[in-house]
Design a binder for these strands. Structure first.
Lengths: 138, 138
DNA sequence: ATAGGTGCAAAGAGTTTGCATATAA
DNA sequence: TTATATGCAAACTCTTTGCACCTAT
């Protein structure tokens, strides 16, 4: 589990300015579960009433570039974002739209496939499950 | 490996009309590798000079609904589409943009995680790897 | 001091929708 | 015959860009 100061340090090291807006976006990424840019924007307006969606997108893009944020591009709707921390997989409920984090069982074997016998250079990978969660199935 | 007539039968069964446009879209899905809607549209214009992108999107949407097509939503760019046939995983090269099909090693163990101890109803899943392919790494 | 960030508005890309015409069944 | 598909254009959503002003370093 990454800490907030680890993220902020990383941002500084990578040459990103630590504006109050950016700091709060990072805080929200720790508080919210897989938020969309718009969700972050809405939460931001409580503390920064005049913030722009463009600022949110711009910050998320930079955080993605330095590798502390992952973008989850979900088919027909808007992207969700998460801190690129531990290795985990996602379950996407088609009824309520909730995204659940799941623990991998054997990530190493999976990664071996992704490297294609060493032929490919692997940066990252994602595992996404789709279906109906326990709550919605009841 | 699904056959073209299997797909067309399925479409008929599901109440979709077999128009010449739709038949050719299906043919293109067999010929092309993970095409975008726009790629299919461009190929379609050779045979149907006045076809509309809307028709392509509409057909892909219906094929997705009846489960013969999968949409691969790729982050910041447009979606790619593929026939929902065999169980396979993808490697996405960030340099050339190519999408490679990979053979799963142990899909069952993976699916077991996705079912979350039987709590979730699993429709489907995807495994996406990101990195640099052999060709671009040379 | 100044490179980089912010907020605003406008532009862009991809996808969907409304509607009149055409057509598969 | 008639419910559904097509093609066109316009609309929509999400995201990016341009620019003048501001601010973290």
């Amino acid at each position: 589990m990454m800490s907030k100061s680890t993220v902020l340090d990383k941002m500084k090291v990578e040459g990103l300015r630590l504006t109050p807006q950016r700091v709060h976006i990072v805080e929200l990424l720790f508080e919210l579960s897989h938020p969309t840019a718009d969700r972050i924007y809405t939460m931001m307006t409580e503390k920064f009433p005049h913030i722009s969606l463009a600022t949110v997108y711009s910050t998320l893009k930079k955080l993605k570039e330095i590798g502390v944020v992952r973008e989850l591009s979900s088919g027909d709707k808007s992207s969700h974002f998460e801190l690129a921390e531990t290795d985990h997989w996602h379950f996407n409920c088609k009824v309520c739209g909730e995204i659940y984090d799941l623990e991998p069982n054997d990530a190493e074997a999976l990664v071996a496939v992704g490297m294609n016998n060493g032929a490919f250079h692997l940066d990252s990978y994602r595992v996404e499950f789709y279906g109906v969660c326990a709550k919605c199935n009841a």
